[in-house]
């Protein structure tokens, strides 16, 4: 396959950046998208040019590191996968592929296609934890009975890998799907009740401080989330926040 690439190149956070065109020959349909970029980078290095910087780690869809806007959609055209799980068979010979970094003020570009997602870390640090006694004789978490539906919903929320596709997809660059998943995974469990009110207040406050946009319920985040995190989590966060605010 011959693929025409339009890739965002940006030297550093202060550089204005712009799209650069590349033509890549000999792309095989069973290559992953990231392998295709590896091939491009090998060619660039052989020519003495600067390779395209992009984030990647596990390459099996669980670490949430890869983060590319491909032809205007986070993680590309297929659903419920990350970029590393996207294969070139999803494209045709002669296709032009536009590759951009996640765009959000809270996710500034570091270089090329790599953005700084530490805003998510700070939201998590603001309340995405539970306090557990880790002394010599901790209570086994499995000893606490938890309703099956609540356990499943909590687990579903916990599958969020924090990749940021929700922010990238949202027309408002809102981080509410991420934040609500992190709120929900604890709000649904008895272990999460102790800090429930503080958690939602602090995480939402941090989310606002980071400069993410507001949710307007378009549902784009849910569609593009590689883990299928549901909008129900945002509704749960809205309920939790309202209850916590009224309680003071």
């Amino acid at each position: 396959m011959k693929i025409y690439l339009k890739i965002w190149r940006q030297k550093n956070a202060n550089d204005k950046g712009g799209m650069v065109d590349y033509t890549l020959d000999g792309v095989e349909s069973d290559m992953s998208f990231l392998e295709m970029l590896d091939v491009l980078n090998e060619e660039l290095i052989a020519k003495g040019e600067e390779p395209v910087e992009f984030d990647h780690d596990c390459r099996e869809g669980i670490c949430g590191t890869c983060s590319l806007m491909i032809n205007g959609r986070p993680h590309g055209p297929d659903s419920r996968i990350t970029v590393c799980q996207l294969h070139m068979r999803s494209f045709d010979d002669g296709d032009t592929i536009v590759i951009e970094p996640w765009r959000a003020k809270a996710f500034p570009v570091i270089k090329d296609l790599i953005v700084d997602r530490t805003a998510f870390d700070r939201i998590q640090q603001a309340g995405g934890y539970i306090s557990v006694n880790t002394s010599g004789r901790p209570v086994d978490a499995n000893a606490i009975p938890i309703e099956k539906d609540a356990a499943d919903a909590s687990f579903n929320a916990a599958t969020c890998i924090g990749c940021g596709a929700c922010v990238a997809a949202c027309k408002n660059a809102s981080a509410m799907l991420f934040t609500s998943a992190k709120v929900s995974q604890f709000a649904l469990l008895p272990q999460g009740q102790v800090e429930a009110a503080d958690r939602v207040m602090n995480m939402v406050r941090q989310m606002d401080l980071e400069g993410f946009g507001n949710c307007t319920n378009t549902g784009a985040c849910e569609v593009e989330c590689p883990k299928g995190i549901s909008l129900e989590n945002i509704a749960r966060m809205n309920r939790e926040y309202l209850a916590a605010s009224v309680k003071g």
Partner: peptide
């Protein structure tokens, strides 16, 4: 919400998911 995006996308398929 417009400010939250900052730099816009060159290609953005908003219609694909909402």
């Amino acid at each position: 919400n417009r400010n939250a995006r900052g730099v816009g996308y060159i290609k953005y398929q908003g219609g694909a998911n909402a």
